[in-house]
Amino acid sequence: MKALALITARGGSKRIPRKNIKDFNGKPIIAYSIEAALGSGVFDEVMVSTDDDEIAEIAKSYGAQVPFLRSEKTSNDFATTADVINEVISEYEKRGKKFDIITCIYPTAPFITAKKLKNAVEELSASDADTLIPVVRFSYPPQRAMEIHDGRLVFRQPENLSKRSQDLEPHYHDAGQFYVTRTESFLKTNSLLVGSILPLELSELEVQDIDNEVDWKLAELKYNLISKDITE
């Protein structure tokens, strides 16, 4: 069973300029994703999909392949992850290569480890599921969410106010780090979020969206706090 690690890294980041190659604790943040993928030992190829020559050169310097540059169509602000995956599949097929499993990895996810990727790919391979997604539990019960109507707070589910937190069903959200999917399943649905999905639960310390400078600083703080565990 052939597996591809696909790291998505376009050059046009708006909120944090050059975000995908910005220094994170001493090296370009994309390097963490590349090194984890290479270190996992489960991928036949580790590639970076980018439209940017500088990102491509940095990716290559850390051991990733950049067999082609991303098209203009999949580099704009409206292109989806699915668009990028489809393009990568198509370009590899032109080169006579096909992969049974694709792991789509984000370039700003320094909490990814080789061990996590290895376990994730092996778990999906051994199952009959279509996809595996890392998730994290909501720290506050969504069942007690509030809305503001006409300047007043309104509980969405007032029937849950008297229940203990531990009695409410845990809810989870996408950790925004990587997705492991069967190529055949993806091509049928053109989505990573349908079909039979396995969860990989992560702790809050291992998850941080990085959309602005405050997020970046929080990610560095978390990384330094648990760096010993990450690098083991």
Results as ranks from 00 to 15, higher is better:
113 T>G: 05
137 R>M: 09
98 K>G: 11
65 Q>R: 14
75 S>G: 02
92 Y>E: 12
99 F>E: 03
108 T>Y: 07
125 S>N: 09
46 V>T: 14
117 L>G: 04
63 G>V: 02
73 K>D: 14
84 V>C: 10
70 R>Q: 10
45 E>G: 06
116 K>W: 10
94 K>I: 01
37 A>H: 06
106 Y>G: 06
84 V>L: 08
128 D>F: 08
124 L>E: 02
127 S>I: 11
114 A>Y: 01
53 D>M: 08
110 P>M: 00
51 D>G: 14
121 V>G: 00
52 D>T: 11
137 R>P: 03
69 L>A: 06
44 D>V: 09
82 A>L: 03
78 F>W: 09
68 F>P: 14
51 D>E: 14
89 I>D: 10
56 A>V: 01
46 V>Y: 11
122 E>M: 06
50 T>K: 11
118 K>Y: 06
40 S>M: 11
75 S>F: 01
125 S>T: 09
131 T>Q: 03
119 N>M: 05
102 I>G: 03
126 A>E: 13
78 F>N: 12
99 F>I: 02
69 L>G: 05
51 D>L: 15
96 G>S: 11
44 D>N: 15
133 I>G: 08
71 S>K: 09
105 I>H: 04
58 I>R: 02
78 F>D: 13
136 V>E: 14
64 A>N: 02
124 L>T: 02
42 V>G: 14
65 Q>I: 11
93 E>K: 13
90 S>A: 12
78 F>H: 12
70 R>Y: 02
83 D>M: 07
102 I>A: 02
35 E>W: 02
98 K>P: 07
77 D>S: 05
56 A>I: 01
42 V>C: 15
117 L>A: 00
125 S>A: 14
84 V>H: 10
50 T>A: 11
120 A>I: 03
59 A>D: 00
49 S>N: 14
41 G>S: 09
57 E>A: 04
69 L>V: 04
45 E>L: 12
91 E>H: 04
64 A>S: 01
106 Y>F: 04
84 V>Y: 05
68 F>K: 11
56 A>H: 04
44 D>F: 07
137 R>E: 15
99 F>D: 05
59 A>V: 03
50 T>N: 08
55 I>V: 15
99 F>R: 04
71 S>T: 15
114 A>W: 01
118 K>V: 05
114 A>F: 01
54 E>P: 03
76 N>P: 05
52 D>C: 15
61 S>D: 11
112 I>T: 12
98 K>Y: 08
127 S>N: 13
111 F>V: 07
92 Y>A: 10
113 T>D: 04
